[in-house]
Design a protein around this nucleic acid. Sequence first.
DNA 1: CGTAGTGTTGAATTGAATCAAGTGTCGTGG
DNA 2: CCACGACACTTGATTCAATTCAACACTACG
Lengths: 264, 264
Amino acid sequence: MSPRDMSSNSPTVNDNKITMKPQTVVRKICPHNANVSCSSCRLNELCLPIALNKSEIHLLDEIVERNRPYKKGDHLYRQNDDFKSVYAVRSGSFKSYVLSNNGQGRVTGFFLPGEIIGMDGIASKHYANSTQALEHSSICEIPFSQLEKLSQQLPSLQHHFFAIMGNEIAKDQQIHTLLSSYTAEERTASFLLGLSSRFAHVALSPIRYLLPMTRSDIGEYLGLTVETVSRILTALQRKGLIEVNNREIELLDIEALRQVIGSK
Amino acid sequence: MSPRDMSSNSPTVNDNKITMKPQTVVRKICPHNANVSCSSCRLNELCLPIALNKSEIHLLDEIVERNRPYKKGDHLYRQNDDFKSVYAVRSGSFKSYVLSNNGQGRVTGFFLPGEIIGMDGIASKHYANSTQALEHSSICEIPFSQLEKLSQQLPSLQHHFFAIMGNEIAKDQQIHTLLSSYTAEERTASFLLGLSSRFAHVALSPIRYLLPMTRSDIGEYLGLTVETVSRILTALQRKGLIEVNNREIELLDIEALRQVIGSK
DNA sequence: CGTAGTGTTGAATTGAATCAAGTGTCGTGG
DNA sequence: CCACGACACTTGATTCAATTCAACACTACG
Protein backbone atom coordinates (compact mmCIF):
# COMPACT_ATOMS: atom_id res chain seq x y z
CA MET A 1 0.00 0.00 0.00
CA SER A 2 1.31 3.38 -0.79
CA PRO A 3 2.21 6.11 1.63
CA ARG A 4 0.07 8.47 -0.29
CA ASP A 5 -2.45 10.87 1.07
CA MET A 6 0.05 13.18 2.66
CA SER A 7 -1.94 16.02 4.07
CA SER A 8 -2.17 17.95 0.88
CA ASN A 9 -3.02 21.04 2.79
CA SER A 10 -0.29 21.54 5.32
CA PRO A 11 2.51 23.71 3.94
CA THR A 12 3.46 24.12 7.53
CA VAL A 13 5.98 22.29 9.55
CA ASN A 14 8.15 19.94 7.70
CA ASP A 15 10.40 22.12 5.62
CA ASN A 16 12.57 23.92 8.08
CA LYS A 17 15.62 22.81 6.15
CA ILE A 18 17.16 24.27 3.16
CA THR A 19 16.53 27.89 2.74
CA MET A 20 13.11 28.41 1.26
CA LYS A 21 9.99 26.41 1.24
CA PRO A 22 6.61 27.88 0.42
CA GLN A 23 7.00 28.06 -3.34
CA THR A 24 7.95 24.46 -3.74
CA VAL A 25 4.62 23.43 -2.44
CA VAL A 26 3.05 25.50 -5.13
CA ARG A 27 5.10 23.81 -7.79
CA LYS A 28 4.12 20.41 -6.58
CA ILE A 29 0.51 21.25 -7.02
CA CYS A 30 0.99 22.36 -10.58
CA PRO A 31 -2.12 21.01 -12.23
CA HIS A 32 -1.20 19.59 -15.58
CA ASN A 33 1.23 17.05 -14.32
CA ALA A 34 -0.88 14.61 -12.49
CA ASN A 35 1.33 12.42 -10.33
CA VAL A 36 3.91 15.06 -10.00
CA SER A 37 5.16 14.84 -6.45
CA CYS A 38 7.39 12.11 -5.14
CA SER A 39 4.99 11.47 -2.31
CA SER A 40 2.13 10.67 -4.61
CA CYS A 41 4.18 8.85 -7.22
CA ARG A 42 3.22 5.25 -7.54
CA LEU A 43 6.86 4.30 -8.12
CA ASN A 44 7.62 5.56 -4.71
CA GLU A 45 9.00 2.33 -3.49
CA LEU A 46 11.40 1.69 -6.31
CA CYS A 47 12.84 5.06 -6.74
CA LEU A 48 14.63 7.24 -4.25
CA PRO A 49 11.90 8.07 -1.73
CA ILE A 50 11.73 4.65 -0.21
CA ALA A 51 12.71 4.84 3.42
CA LEU A 52 12.13 8.55 3.63
CA ASN A 53 9.46 9.95 5.85
CA LYS A 54 6.99 12.53 4.68
CA SER A 55 8.91 15.64 5.50
CA GLU A 56 12.00 14.16 3.95
CA ILE A 57 10.14 13.40 0.77
CA HIS A 58 9.15 17.01 0.53
CA LEU A 59 12.78 18.00 0.60
CA LEU A 60 13.51 15.56 -2.17
CA ASP A 61 10.58 16.85 -4.14
CA GLU A 62 12.16 20.25 -4.14
CA ILE A 63 15.24 19.17 -6.02
CA VAL A 64 13.58 16.89 -8.52
CA GLU A 65 12.94 18.37 -11.94
CA ARG A 66 10.14 16.83 -13.90
CA ASN A 67 11.05 17.37 -17.50
CA ARG A 68 8.77 17.39 -20.47
CA PRO A 69 8.10 13.94 -21.90
CA TYR A 70 10.63 12.39 -24.26
CA LYS A 71 9.49 10.84 -27.46
CA LYS A 72 10.88 7.71 -29.06
CA GLY A 73 14.48 8.23 -30.07
CA ASP A 74 15.03 11.41 -28.00
CA HIS A 75 18.27 11.45 -26.10
CA LEU A 76 18.43 12.01 -22.38
CA TYR A 77 22.13 12.68 -22.77
CA ARG A 78 24.96 11.61 -25.03
CA GLN A 79 28.20 9.81 -24.44
CA ASN A 80 30.75 12.24 -23.04
CA ASP A 81 28.27 14.98 -22.13
CA ASP A 82 29.02 16.66 -18.83
CA PHE A 83 27.52 14.68 -16.00
CA LYS A 84 24.95 16.70 -14.14
CA SER A 85 22.05 14.54 -13.05
CA VAL A 86 20.79 11.08 -12.53
CA TYR A 87 17.34 10.29 -13.82
CA ALA A 88 14.46 8.18 -12.57
CA VAL A 89 12.19 6.73 -15.22
CA ARG A 90 8.61 7.75 -14.53
CA SER A 91 6.98 6.08 -17.50
CA GLY A 92 8.10 4.44 -20.71
CA SER A 93 11.59 3.00 -21.20
CA PHE A 94 15.11 3.88 -22.24
CA LYS A 95 18.24 2.21 -23.51
CA SER A 96 21.87 3.11 -22.93
CA TYR A 97 24.43 2.35 -25.57
CA VAL A 98 27.96 3.09 -26.65
CA LEU A 99 29.23 3.49 -30.18
CA SER A 100 32.38 1.62 -31.12
CA ASN A 101 34.92 3.15 -33.45
CA ASN A 102 33.75 0.95 -36.25
CA GLY A 103 30.31 2.43 -35.97
CA GLN A 104 28.59 -0.47 -34.30
CA GLY A 105 26.54 0.24 -31.24
CA ARG A 106 26.44 -1.96 -28.17
CA VAL A 107 23.54 -1.64 -25.78
CA THR A 108 24.65 -1.44 -22.15
CA GLY A 109 21.30 -1.30 -20.41
CA PHE A 110 17.55 -0.98 -20.52
CA PHE A 111 15.60 1.10 -18.03
CA LEU A 112 12.00 0.66 -16.97
CA PRO A 113 9.84 2.80 -14.69
CA GLY A 114 11.28 3.29 -11.23
CA GLU A 115 14.84 2.59 -12.36
CA ILE A 116 17.73 5.03 -12.14
CA ILE A 117 19.79 6.14 -15.14
CA GLY A 118 23.14 7.86 -15.40
CA MET A 119 25.23 6.56 -12.54
CA ASP A 120 28.03 5.67 -14.92
CA GLY A 121 28.88 9.36 -15.12
CA ILE A 122 29.35 10.01 -11.41
CA ALA A 123 33.03 9.18 -11.23
CA SER A 124 34.36 10.75 -14.39
CA LYS A 125 31.89 13.63 -14.48
CA HIS A 126 31.04 12.62 -18.04
CA TYR A 127 28.42 10.16 -19.10
CA ALA A 128 30.06 6.98 -20.38
CA ASN A 129 27.20 6.21 -22.76
CA SER A 130 24.31 7.74 -24.59
CA THR A 131 20.76 7.04 -23.53
CA GLN A 132 17.61 7.47 -25.48
CA ALA A 133 13.89 6.81 -25.11
CA LEU A 134 12.56 3.60 -26.64
CA GLU A 135 9.03 4.98 -26.63
CA HIS A 136 7.17 8.02 -25.40
CA SER A 137 8.51 8.35 -21.85
CA SER A 138 8.79 10.67 -18.90
CA ILE A 139 11.55 11.23 -16.45
CA CYS A 140 12.40 12.80 -13.13
CA GLU A 141 15.75 14.54 -13.29
CA ILE A 142 17.71 14.68 -10.05
CA PRO A 143 20.66 17.09 -10.14
CA PHE A 144 23.43 15.11 -8.58
CA SER A 145 25.10 17.87 -6.62
CA GLN A 146 21.80 18.58 -4.96
CA LEU A 147 21.25 14.93 -4.26
CA GLU A 148 24.62 14.87 -2.59
CA LYS A 149 23.81 17.90 -0.49
CA LEU A 150 20.50 16.46 0.56
CA SER A 151 22.15 13.14 1.36
CA GLN A 152 24.25 14.99 3.88
CA GLN A 153 21.12 16.04 5.68
CA LEU A 154 19.15 12.84 5.33
CA PRO A 155 21.06 9.75 6.39
CA SER A 156 18.35 7.52 5.03
CA LEU A 157 18.65 9.11 1.62
CA GLN A 158 22.39 8.59 1.63
CA HIS A 159 21.86 5.02 2.72
CA HIS A 160 19.30 4.43 0.03
CA PHE A 161 21.41 5.87 -2.73
CA PHE A 162 24.38 3.76 -1.68
CA ALA A 163 22.01 0.82 -1.93
CA ILE A 164 20.85 1.82 -5.39
CA MET A 165 24.41 2.05 -6.60
CA GLY A 166 25.32 -1.20 -4.91
CA ASN A 167 22.40 -2.84 -6.60
CA GLU A 168 23.58 -1.57 -9.96
CA ILE A 169 27.01 -3.05 -9.27
CA ALA A 170 25.56 -6.40 -8.29
CA LYS A 171 23.35 -6.48 -11.38
CA ASP A 172 26.25 -5.60 -13.66
CA GLN A 173 28.22 -8.48 -12.23
CA GLN A 174 25.40 -10.89 -12.90
CA ILE A 175 25.44 -9.76 -16.50
CA HIS A 176 29.18 -10.31 -16.55
CA THR A 177 28.55 -13.92 -15.61
CA LEU A 178 25.75 -14.25 -18.11
CA LEU A 179 27.87 -12.91 -20.96
CA SER A 180 30.91 -14.92 -20.06
CA SER A 181 29.29 -18.30 -19.69
CA TYR A 182 25.72 -18.57 -20.93
CA THR A 183 24.69 -19.92 -24.33
CA ALA A 184 22.42 -17.91 -26.60
CA GLU A 185 19.37 -19.74 -25.35
CA GLU A 186 20.31 -19.28 -21.70
CA ARG A 187 20.94 -15.57 -22.22
CA THR A 188 17.63 -15.09 -23.91
CA ALA A 189 15.66 -17.04 -21.31
CA SER A 190 17.39 -15.09 -18.57
CA PHE A 191 16.61 -11.84 -20.31
CA LEU A 192 12.92 -12.65 -20.65
CA LEU A 193 12.68 -13.69 -17.01
CA GLY A 194 14.53 -10.58 -15.93
CA LEU A 195 12.11 -8.35 -17.79
CA SER A 196 9.27 -10.32 -16.32
CA SER A 197 10.23 -9.56 -12.76
CA ARG A 198 10.98 -5.94 -13.54
CA PHE A 199 7.52 -5.55 -15.04
CA ALA A 200 6.06 -7.22 -11.99
CA HIS A 201 7.72 -4.57 -9.83
CA VAL A 202 5.77 -1.86 -11.53
CA ALA A 203 2.53 -3.78 -11.26
CA LEU A 204 2.49 -4.96 -14.85
CA SER A 205 1.93 -8.53 -15.86
CA PRO A 206 5.00 -10.72 -15.42
CA ILE A 207 3.72 -13.28 -17.88
CA ARG A 208 2.54 -11.17 -20.76
CA TYR A 209 4.27 -7.99 -21.81
CA LEU A 210 5.42 -5.89 -24.73
CA LEU A 211 9.10 -5.64 -25.50
CA PRO A 212 9.97 -1.97 -25.74
CA MET A 213 13.15 -2.72 -27.69
CA THR A 214 13.99 -4.27 -31.05
CA ARG A 215 15.54 -7.69 -31.57
CA SER A 216 18.65 -5.86 -32.56
CA ASP A 217 18.75 -4.00 -29.23
CA ILE A 218 18.35 -7.29 -27.41
CA GLY A 219 21.14 -8.81 -29.46
CA GLU A 220 23.49 -5.91 -28.81
CA TYR A 221 22.73 -6.17 -25.12
CA LEU A 222 23.17 -9.94 -24.88
CA GLY A 223 26.14 -10.19 -27.18
CA LEU A 224 24.21 -11.98 -29.93
CA THR A 225 23.21 -11.11 -33.47
CA VAL A 226 19.65 -10.17 -34.42
CA GLU A 227 19.30 -13.41 -36.32
CA THR A 228 20.26 -15.47 -33.32
CA VAL A 229 17.81 -13.65 -31.06
CA SER A 230 15.08 -14.22 -33.57
CA ARG A 231 15.92 -17.88 -33.95
CA ILE A 232 16.05 -18.46 -30.20
CA LEU A 233 12.69 -16.81 -29.67
CA THR A 234 11.23 -19.00 -32.37
CA ALA A 235 12.83 -22.06 -30.83
CA LEU A 236 11.52 -21.24 -27.35
CA GLN A 237 8.10 -20.81 -28.85
CA ARG A 238 8.31 -24.13 -30.66
CA LYS A 239 9.19 -25.76 -27.37
CA GLY A 240 6.08 -24.25 -25.86
CA LEU A 241 7.89 -22.12 -23.31
CA ILE A 242 6.77 -18.79 -24.68
CA GLU A 243 4.39 -17.29 -27.18
CA VAL A 244 5.81 -14.55 -29.37
CA ASN A 245 3.88 -12.14 -31.53
CA ASN A 246 6.10 -9.46 -32.79
CA ARG A 247 6.90 -7.38 -29.69
CA GLU A 248 4.39 -9.17 -27.56
CA ILE A 249 5.74 -11.88 -25.29
CA GLU A 250 3.85 -14.36 -23.23
CA LEU A 251 5.66 -16.64 -20.83
CA LEU A 252 3.80 -19.92 -21.03
CA ASP A 253 6.02 -21.99 -18.79
CA ILE A 254 8.11 -19.96 -16.42
CA GLU A 255 9.35 -22.99 -14.58
CA ALA A 256 10.68 -24.51 -17.77
CA LEU A 257 12.30 -21.21 -18.67
CA ARG A 258 14.05 -21.27 -15.32
CA GLN A 259 15.15 -24.79 -16.15
CA VAL A 260 16.80 -23.54 -19.30
CA ILE A 261 19.24 -21.61 -17.15
CA GLY A 262 18.94 -24.04 -14.30
CA SER A 263 22.45 -25.38 -14.24
CA LYS A 264 23.96 -21.92 -14.25
CA MET B 1 51.19 -16.79 10.75
CA SER B 2 49.08 -15.52 13.55
CA PRO B 3 47.16 -12.32 13.62
CA ARG B 4 50.28 -10.57 14.14
CA ASP B 5 51.57 -9.62 17.44
CA MET B 6 49.09 -6.90 18.13
CA SER B 7 50.85 -4.56 20.46
CA SER B 8 51.90 -7.26 22.85
CA ASN B 9 52.74 -4.73 25.42
CA SER B 10 49.87 -2.30 25.42
CA PRO B 11 46.66 -4.05 26.31
CA THR B 12 45.57 -0.60 27.07
CA VAL B 13 44.04 1.86 24.85
CA ASN B 14 43.29 1.01 21.33
CA ASP B 15 40.45 -1.43 21.57
CA ASN B 16 37.42 0.51 22.44
CA LYS B 17 35.64 1.95 19.58
CA ILE B 18 34.82 5.17 18.07
CA THR B 19 34.03 8.12 20.24
CA MET B 20 37.56 8.44 21.50
CA LYS B 21 40.50 9.65 19.62
CA PRO B 22 43.77 10.15 21.42
CA GLN B 23 44.48 6.44 21.50
CA THR B 24 44.11 6.04 17.82
CA VAL B 25 47.27 7.98 17.45
CA VAL B 26 48.91 5.36 19.54
CA ARG B 27 47.64 2.63 17.28
CA LYS B 28 48.94 4.33 14.24
CA ILE B 29 52.37 4.42 15.70
CA CYS B 30 52.33 0.75 16.44
CA PRO B 31 55.83 -0.12 15.30
CA HIS B 32 55.71 -3.32 13.32
CA ASN B 33 53.16 -2.21 10.87
CA ALA B 34 55.00 0.39 8.98
CA ASN B 35 52.56 2.17 6.73
CA VAL B 36 49.67 1.51 8.97
CA SER B 37 47.83 4.79 8.99
CA CYS B 38 45.81 6.08 6.11
CA SER B 39 47.78 9.29 6.15
CA SER B 40 51.07 7.56 5.63
CA CYS B 41 49.79 4.89 3.24
CA ARG B 42 51.31 5.16 -0.16
CA LEU B 43 48.00 4.16 -1.72
CA ASN B 44 46.50 7.26 -0.28
CA GLU B 45 45.36 8.62 -3.56
CA LEU B 46 43.63 5.56 -4.84
CA CYS B 47 41.81 4.51 -1.82
CA LEU B 48 39.34 6.44 0.27
CA PRO B 49 41.47 9.18 1.80
CA ILE B 50 41.93 11.16 -1.35
CA ALA B 51 40.31 14.52 -0.97
CA LEU B 52 40.28 14.37 2.79
CA ASN B 53 42.31 16.75 4.88
CA LYS B 54 44.49 15.60 7.73
CA SER B 55 41.99 15.74 10.52
CA GLU B 56 39.46 13.98 8.34
CA ILE B 57 41.92 11.24 7.57
CA HIS B 58 42.38 10.72 11.27
CA LEU B 59 38.68 10.11 11.61
CA LEU B 60 38.81 7.59 8.82
CA ASP B 61 41.82 5.94 10.38
CA GLU B 62 39.76 5.25 13.43
CA ILE B 63 37.25 3.09 11.67
CA VAL B 64 39.64 1.17 9.45
CA GLU B 65 40.62 -2.27 10.68
CA ARG B 66 43.90 -3.57 9.42
CA ASN B 67 43.53 -7.29 9.44
CA ARG B 68 46.22 -9.88 9.54
CA PRO B 69 47.64 -10.76 6.12
CA TYR B 70 45.82 -13.26 3.98
CA LYS B 71 47.68 -16.06 2.33
CA LYS B 72 47.06 -17.44 -1.12
CA GLY B 73 43.63 -19.02 -1.30
CA ASP B 74 42.29 -17.46 1.91
CA HIS B 75 38.81 -16.09 1.61
CA LEU B 76 37.95 -12.54 2.49
CA TYR B 77 34.31 -13.56 2.50
CA ARG B 78 32.10 -16.06 0.76
CA GLN B 79 29.10 -15.76 -1.47
CA ASN B 80 26.01 -15.05 0.62
CA ASP B 81 27.87 -14.13 3.81
CA ASP B 82 26.34 -11.21 5.65
CA PHE B 83 27.63 -7.96 4.25
CA LYS B 84 29.52 -6.00 6.82
CA SER B 85 32.47 -4.23 5.30
CA VAL B 86 34.12 -3.10 2.18
CA TYR B 87 37.83 -3.75 1.85
CA ALA B 88 40.74 -1.83 0.38
CA VAL B 89 43.61 -3.91 -0.93
CA ARG B 90 46.83 -2.83 0.72
CA SER B 91 49.17 -5.30 -0.95
CA GLY B 92 48.84 -8.42 -3.04
CA SER B 93 45.77 -9.23 -5.09
CA PHE B 94 42.36 -10.88 -4.92
CA LYS B 95 39.78 -12.39 -7.21
CA SER B 96 36.00 -12.48 -6.86
CA TYR B 97 34.05 -15.36 -8.29
CA VAL B 98 30.68 -17.03 -8.26
CA LEU B 99 29.98 -20.74 -8.43
CA SER B 100 27.34 -21.88 -10.88
CA ASN B 101 25.02 -24.72 -10.00
CA ASN B 102 26.95 -27.06 -12.23
CA GLY B 103 30.04 -26.44 -10.17
CA GLN B 104 31.87 -24.20 -12.57
CA GLY B 105 33.28 -20.98 -11.26
CA ARG B 106 33.18 -17.70 -13.10
CA VAL B 107 35.55 -14.93 -12.08
CA THR B 108 33.84 -11.56 -11.72
CA GLY B 109 36.78 -9.38 -10.84
CA PHE B 110 40.42 -8.97 -9.92
CA PHE B 111 41.60 -6.49 -7.31
CA LEU B 112 44.99 -4.85 -7.05
CA PRO B 113 46.39 -2.56 -4.35
CA GLY B 114 44.33 0.56 -3.76
CA GLU B 115 41.16 -1.00 -5.14
CA ILE B 116 37.94 -1.51 -3.21
CA ILE B 117 36.28 -4.89 -2.78
CA GLY B 118 32.82 -5.88 -1.65
CA MET B 119 30.49 -3.21 -2.99
CA ASP B 120 28.28 -5.87 -4.56
CA GLY B 121 26.95 -6.64 -1.10
CA ILE B 122 25.76 -3.16 -0.19
CA ALA B 123 22.27 -3.43 -1.60
CA SER B 124 21.27 -6.92 -0.60
CA LYS B 125 23.27 -6.99 2.64
CA HIS B 126 24.85 -10.22 1.45
CA TYR B 127 27.94 -10.58 -0.66
CA ALA B 128 27.03 -11.67 -4.16
CA ASN B 129 30.32 -13.47 -4.68
CA SER B 130 33.22 -15.06 -2.88
CA THR B 131 36.59 -13.39 -2.88
CA GLN B 132 39.95 -14.89 -2.14
CA ALA B 133 43.59 -13.89 -2.13
CA LEU B 134 45.64 -14.78 -5.21
CA GLU B 135 48.86 -14.42 -3.27
CA HIS B 136 50.02 -13.32 0.15
CA SER B 137 48.07 -10.09 0.61
CA SER B 138 46.97 -7.52 3.12
CA ILE B 139 43.76 -5.59 3.47
CA CYS B 140 42.16 -2.65 5.20
CA GLU B 141 38.68 -3.52 6.33
CA ILE B 142 36.18 -0.67 6.45
CA PRO B 143 32.97 -1.49 8.32
CA PHE B 144 30.31 -0.12 6.07
CA SER B 145 27.93 1.20 8.69
CA GLN B 146 30.77 3.24 10.13
CA LEU B 147 31.73 4.45 6.70
CA GLU B 148 28.17 5.61 6.24
CA LYS B 149 28.17 7.41 9.56
CA LEU B 150 31.43 9.10 8.81
CA SER B 151 30.18 10.07 5.36
CA GLN B 152 27.44 12.00 7.08
CA GLN B 153 30.05 14.06 8.82
CA LEU B 154 32.48 14.44 5.96
CA PRO B 155 30.91 15.59 2.71
CA SER B 156 34.10 14.93 0.81
CA LEU B 157 34.14 11.33 1.99
CA GLN B 158 30.57 10.84 0.86
CA HIS B 159 31.43 12.43 -2.45
CA HIS B 160 34.46 10.25 -2.87
CA PHE B 161 32.64 7.06 -2.07
CA PHE B 162 29.91 7.91 -4.53
CA ALA B 163 32.68 8.38 -7.06
CA ILE B 164 34.25 5.03 -6.22
CA MET B 165 30.96 3.28 -6.70
CA GLY B 166 30.26 5.21 -9.88
CA ASN B 167 33.63 4.18 -11.16
CA GLU B 168 32.86 0.55 -10.46
CA ILE B 169 29.62 0.90 -12.40
CA ALA B 170 31.37 2.51 -15.35
CA LYS B 171 34.04 -0.21 -15.36
CA ASP B 172 31.48 -2.98 -15.21
CA GLN B 173 29.74 -1.51 -18.22
CA GLN B 174 32.96 -1.44 -20.19
CA ILE B 175 33.35 -5.11 -19.45
CA HIS B 176 29.80 -5.64 -20.61
CA THR B 177 30.80 -4.17 -23.96
CA LEU B 178 33.97 -6.18 -24.06
CA LEU B 179 32.20 -9.45 -23.40
CA SER B 180 29.38 -8.77 -25.78
CA SER B 181 31.41 -7.74 -28.79
CA TYR B 182 35.13 -8.41 -28.58
CA THR B 183 36.93 -11.40 -30.06
CA ALA B 184 39.20 -13.56 -27.95
CA GLU B 185 42.26 -11.65 -29.10
CA GLU B 186 40.64 -8.27 -28.45
CA ARG B 187 39.57 -9.34 -24.97
CA THR B 188 43.01 -10.56 -24.12
CA ALA B 189 44.77 -7.48 -25.44
CA SER B 190 42.34 -5.29 -23.55
CA PHE B 191 42.92 -7.28 -20.40
CA LEU B 192 46.69 -6.96 -20.61
CA LEU B 193 46.48 -3.22 -21.25
CA GLY B 194 44.02 -2.82 -18.39
CA LEU B 195 46.36 -4.56 -15.98
CA SER B 196 49.18 -2.45 -17.29
CA SER B 197 47.54 0.80 -16.35
CA ARG B 198 46.39 -0.52 -13.01
CA PHE B 199 49.95 -1.52 -12.20
CA ALA B 200 51.12 1.90 -13.30
CA HIS B 201 48.74 3.45 -10.76
CA VAL B 202 50.52 1.73 -7.95
CA ALA B 203 53.92 2.72 -9.26
CA LEU B 204 54.72 -0.66 -10.76
CA SER B 205 55.98 -1.13 -14.27
CA PRO B 206 53.24 -0.91 -16.87
CA ILE B 207 55.29 -2.78 -19.41
CA ARG B 208 56.60 -5.70 -17.43
CA TYR B 209 54.61 -7.38 -14.71
CA LEU B 210 53.67 -10.68 -13.14
CA LEU B 211 50.18 -12.01 -13.59
CA PRO B 212 48.82 -12.83 -10.16
CA MET B 213 46.17 -15.11 -11.62
CA THR B 214 46.15 -18.34 -13.61
CA ARG B 215 45.24 -18.65 -17.27
CA SER B 216 42.10 -20.33 -16.10
CA ASP B 217 41.16 -17.32 -13.95
CA ILE B 218 41.72 -15.06 -16.93
CA GLY B 219 39.58 -17.29 -19.08
CA GLU B 220 36.76 -17.37 -16.57
CA TYR B 221 36.91 -13.60 -16.34
CA LEU B 222 37.00 -12.97 -20.08
CA GLY B 223 34.52 -15.65 -21.04
CA LEU B 224 37.12 -17.83 -22.77
CA THR B 225 38.58 -21.26 -22.08
CA VAL B 226 42.06 -21.78 -20.68
CA GLU B 227 43.18 -23.20 -23.99
CA THR B 228 42.06 -20.13 -25.88
CA VAL B 229 43.79 -17.78 -23.46
CA SER B 230 46.96 -19.78 -23.81
CA ARG B 231 46.76 -19.80 -27.59
CA ILE B 232 46.09 -16.08 -27.78
CA LEU B 233 49.04 -15.26 -25.56
CA THR B 234 51.24 -17.42 -27.72
CA ALA B 235 49.88 -15.76 -30.84
CA LEU B 236 50.47 -12.25 -29.47
CA GLN B 237 53.97 -13.29 -28.62
CA ARG B 238 54.58 -14.67 -32.11
CA LYS B 239 53.42 -11.36 -33.53
CA GLY B 240 55.98 -9.61 -31.37
CA LEU B 241 53.46 -7.64 -29.33
CA ILE B 242 54.28 -9.25 -26.01
CA GLU B 243 56.78 -11.53 -24.39
CA VAL B 244 55.36 -14.23 -22.15
CA ASN B 245 57.27 -16.35 -19.68
CA ASN B 246 54.92 -18.24 -17.55
CA ARG B 247 53.29 -15.60 -15.34
CA GLU B 248 55.64 -12.89 -16.47
CA ILE B 249 54.34 -10.54 -19.11
CA GLU B 250 56.24 -7.92 -21.03
CA LEU B 251 54.39 -5.56 -23.34
CA LEU B 252 56.73 -5.06 -26.27
CA ASP B 253 54.50 -2.92 -28.44
CA ILE B 254 51.75 -1.18 -26.56
CA GLU B 255 50.68 0.83 -29.57
CA ALA B 256 50.15 -2.33 -31.60
CA LEU B 257 48.24 -3.86 -28.72
CA ARG B 258 45.96 -0.84 -28.74
CA GLN B 259 45.56 -1.36 -32.46
CA VAL B 260 44.29 -4.85 -31.81
CA ILE B 261 41.28 -3.37 -30.11
CA GLY B 262 41.43 -0.21 -32.17
CA SER B 263 38.21 -0.52 -34.05
CA LYS B 264 36.24 -1.19 -30.90
C1' DC C 1 0.18 3.07 -50.32
C1' DG C 2 4.99 2.91 -50.51
C1' DT C 3 9.27 2.64 -48.28
C1' DA C 4 12.35 2.13 -44.48
C1' DG C 5 12.88 -0.26 -40.62
C1' DT C 6 12.10 -4.61 -38.30
C1' DG C 7 11.84 -9.44 -38.22
C1' DT C 8 12.31 -14.29 -40.01
C1' DT C 9 14.44 -18.19 -42.16
C1' DG C 10 17.96 -20.88 -44.66
C1' DA C 11 22.76 -22.21 -46.07
C1' DA C 12 27.54 -21.69 -45.58
C1' DT C 13 31.37 -20.33 -42.71
C1' DT C 14 34.15 -19.74 -38.77
C1' DG C 15 36.01 -18.63 -34.11
C1' DA C 16 36.27 -20.66 -30.07
C1' DA C 17 35.08 -24.84 -27.44
C1' DT C 18 35.95 -29.43 -26.65
C1' DC C 19 38.59 -33.47 -26.48
C1' DA C 20 43.03 -35.34 -26.04
C1' DA C 21 47.72 -35.75 -25.02
C1' DG C 22 51.31 -34.08 -23.66
C1' DT C 23 55.24 -30.78 -20.93
C1' DG C 24 56.50 -27.54 -17.31
C1' DT C 25 56.54 -25.76 -12.48
C1' DC C 26 56.10 -25.57 -7.74
C1' DG C 27 55.46 -26.82 -3.08
C1' DT C 28 55.70 -30.66 0.18
C1' DG C 29 57.27 -34.32 2.66
C1' DG C 30 60.53 -37.96 2.75
C1' DC D 1 67.84 -31.52 -1.31
C1' DC D 2 65.53 -34.29 -4.26
C1' DA D 3 61.43 -36.75 -5.92
C1' DC D 4 56.82 -36.88 -6.28
C1' DG D 5 52.35 -35.46 -7.16
C1' DA D 6 49.22 -31.90 -8.17
C1' DC D 7 48.42 -28.14 -10.81
C1' DA D 8 49.26 -25.07 -14.46
C1' DC D 9 50.12 -24.52 -19.09
C1' DT D 10 50.65 -25.67 -24.08
C1' DT D 11 49.61 -27.56 -28.51
C1' DG D 12 47.02 -30.21 -31.91
C1' DA D 13 42.77 -32.28 -34.05
C1' DT D 14 37.96 -32.11 -34.23
C1' DT D 15 33.41 -30.33 -33.39
C1' DC D 16 29.84 -27.12 -32.83
C1' DA D 17 27.27 -22.93 -31.63
C1' DA D 18 26.70 -18.76 -33.33
C1' DT D 19 27.89 -15.56 -37.03
C1' DT D 20 27.70 -14.18 -41.59
C1' DC D 21 25.63 -13.74 -45.90
C1' DA D 22 21.53 -13.72 -48.44
C1' DA D 23 16.80 -13.46 -49.52
C1' DC D 24 12.47 -12.47 -48.28
C1' DA D 25 8.07 -11.12 -45.26
C1' DC D 26 5.87 -8.10 -42.22
C1' DT D 27 4.32 -3.63 -40.23
C1' DA D 28 3.86 0.67 -39.35
C1' DC D 29 3.90 5.23 -40.11
C1' DG D 30 4.23 9.60 -42.84
